[in-house]
Design a protein around this nucleic acid. Sequence first.
RNA 1: CGGGGCGUAGCGCAGUCCGGUAGCGCACCGGCUUUGGGAGCCGGGGGCCGCGGGUUCGAAUCCCGCCGCCCCGACCA
Length: 465
Amino acid sequence: MSKSVLTPQADDFPRWYQEVLAKAEMAENGPGRGTMIIRPWGYGIWELVQRAMDDLIKATGHSNAYFPLFIPYNFLQREAAHVEGFSPELAVVTIGGGEELAEPLVVRPTSETVIGDAMSRWIQSYRDLPLLLNQWANVVRWELRPRLFLRTTEFLWQEGHTAHTSWDDAQAETMRILDEVYFAVIDGVLGVPVIRGRKTDRERFAGARVTYTLEGLMRDGKALQMGTSHNMGTNFAKAFDISYQSEGGTEELANTTSWGVSTRVVGGVVMAHGDDRGLRLPPLVSPVQVVVLAVKPEALDACRRLTDDIAATGVRVKLDDRTDTSFGRRAVEWELKGVPVRIELGPRDVEQGQAVVVRRDVDGKQPTPLEGFAAGMPSMLEDVQRSLYDQAVARRNEMTADVDSADAIDGPGFFRIGWDALGREDGEAKLAERAYSVRCLVKSDGSVPAPDDSDDLIAYVAKAY
RNA sequence: CGGGGCGUAGCGCAGUCCGGUAGCGCACCGGCUUUGGGAGCCGGGGGCCGCGGGUUCGAAUCCCGCCGCCCCGACCA
């Protein structure tokens, strides 16, 4: 070990975050305010998130579609709470082709309105329901304080929009997404443990009847909202006339839902797993899962064979054959990028019939016989995946405290406090003055509260990104 | 938008107080020697000193205005 590569997390976490994004070639600021250039390494992670999520979205019966980037301004105004919530952060196009537009177009901050408008035409009968749609898109929100991945003016996401015959069906959908899609991906693929819960009225999505969330805890003890799932009830159906004729012949309003996960989760992976030497990527979202580092040119043939053998097991493996670049430089580079497993193979190893395995989730190096080596890679990657997850869980638990008074809420991490002991909305408002927020409410047994559950609630409180 | 800090080579910075025609480290290019934890030596290339105006013989430096970025808040996926 020589000079340190990054500002240590403990010294200045935001600085560490920016440095690691730059040095791992993840992303950088775009030329326009608050915009982001996602470089191949960062985009590769997002693509893996997308693939995992898209598979589950489809497995739960949804179809992808695409709706316009530009939305007539008046659409936003049709749902009172929605327009109130989003107006401050809208980008509005007033000039097109050199002419002032008769009606301004907003660049979508989210697509409930355009999709609601389409749904009103597509849905006539109860037989048209449920209508289960999703789109992968970019959206724009004029945020006051952008941060790469966590809050950028333009960001990429998926947004699901569904319509149902009843409140109960919509509620079941809202929960299905929360559990079977979002939790499955964020917890199971990104390896970020999250608390699932209900948002307070104060934190609820603009226009929703109830909002559910998944809250992760980053290594600096701040929370990150990693996804949300909303039940709109009939709010948007009323605003956009999404109605259908029931089996009994009556005219009924549909109940709609919406739910989204964005490129923010990439920032979450960085901040939940990364250490002072760089990223630590869970194998399931690492563009390269195993890198074979040829120590010297004489070992290249053996490295090629090993790389091919590993590739044959279905692992994403890359050969680093840049033997004109020093060993140390290359080792540091792969550590920064967070590749889960690095294999160092040099002439000495070849001679001894071994390779040196370096796992990013633990310290130390492990000489391993080349015989049967490749076959062991998939299970080693599973180990790394589990180990990073376990470390994140342990860390989250260490940083979670039960308190019985709002006065005891101070410092990093989650604070669990009875919703009544906090003082409900009044207590929540007081916390806000100190930059703390109620991230979500859960039942005392840890389960997710129903929309109208108002007793037996525990608040998870933290500072948040 | 409130509080604080900063804009000088791709990145990180010195120079600004006290005006004299731009420098350091890393990165980059070429050559040789190297390569098992960010290699060494030699030789190179690269700058509207954030932008606009003013003062001056002369401005990175002084004055005025503007813009942008970062950190801490309010807002949020």
